[in-house]
Design a protein around this nucleic acid. Structure first.
Lengths: 139, 139
DNA sequence: ACCTTCCGTTAGTGCCACTAACGTTTCGGC
DNA sequence: GCCGAAACGTTAGTGGCACTAACGGAAGGT
């Protein structure tokens, strides 16, 4: 946190897209920080979760389900495969595809990441210590 | 749009940070697309708006007000200065600082960008054509 | 047989958030 | 007055993510 935030001009403060962006980077950082404790990023979690839920799939299918571009998927799967969280086998029925399978180690890893992400969501949604009924000055 | 989105696993669909992130990238894209028609990015708009509202300021002060890192501010101001939207003069009273001043051209540019951003916000907040009272299937 | 489409992969771009280090200048304490 | 801490502008570089372009190989439709 190099930059102590100053007061934003009202012209900027009220812009929805800026508010959303601010919320998103705060949320992303909380999640990313949590996942970093396991050396993971949000994509790893997304891919593992998708695999756990719908079983083995091709890389393209995983990309569609998680929103990850297929070009980026390659690196993610390389990392997951290096960590033995996932196996990448050529599909015998369609030789264009790879079949991605979740390993037991991957499933365990997913459970750890899932806990971290859940924690992050809780931290996200409950940042106000006392939700006091007599409501705040800027109401 | 290379990737036709597929159905996301429910485990992912319900995660707040993912929803926020999705909203943010949609919002960012709308704004960025609009601003691109004038060759600008959101930072240019933010800096010009901050200058218009509070008058001349140092680069560091602008950074605090807009949320832009002072290292990135340099390039933004270079671009704005190249386009004659802004002047960058050494501060006579504190020689560490530069005084950034909005030029008439900059003010005109700001008005154009402001219109684009306003349009974007409207598009953002009104994506549902009929807000029909008999409410949607997934209620 | 063609042509189109899909697949995995490589390479690269652009925006943004963020860090590190630098030389200069100013300020606070002593 | 001096010295160290802090602020400033600048340069350089990192890393994550969204996205594009192009490829060779394989499958599918007609």
């Amino acid at each position: 946190m190099d930059q102590p935030p100053g007061p934003a001009p009202t012209r900027l403060r009220a812009i929805p897209s800026r508010l959303i962006a601010g919320a998103a980077i705060a949320a992303d950082r909380i999640v990313a920080d949590r996942l970093a404790t396991e050396g993971a990023r949000k994509w790893h979690f997304a891919v593992l979760a998708a695999l756990a839920e719908t079983g083995a799939a091709s890389q393209a299918e995983l990309g569609r389900r998680t929103g990850i571009y297929r070009s980026d998927m390659v690196a993610v799967l390389n990392e997951l495969a290096d960590a033995d969280c996932v196996r990448r086998d050529p599909d015998p029925v369609d030789r264009r595809r790879n079949v991605i399978t979740l390993t037991p180690a991957g499933r365990r890893h997913l459970e750890r990441l899932d806990a971290l992400v859940s924690d992050a969501q809780r931290e996200l949604l409950a940042p106000s210590p006392p939700p006091s009924r007599a409501n705040s000055s800027t109401c």
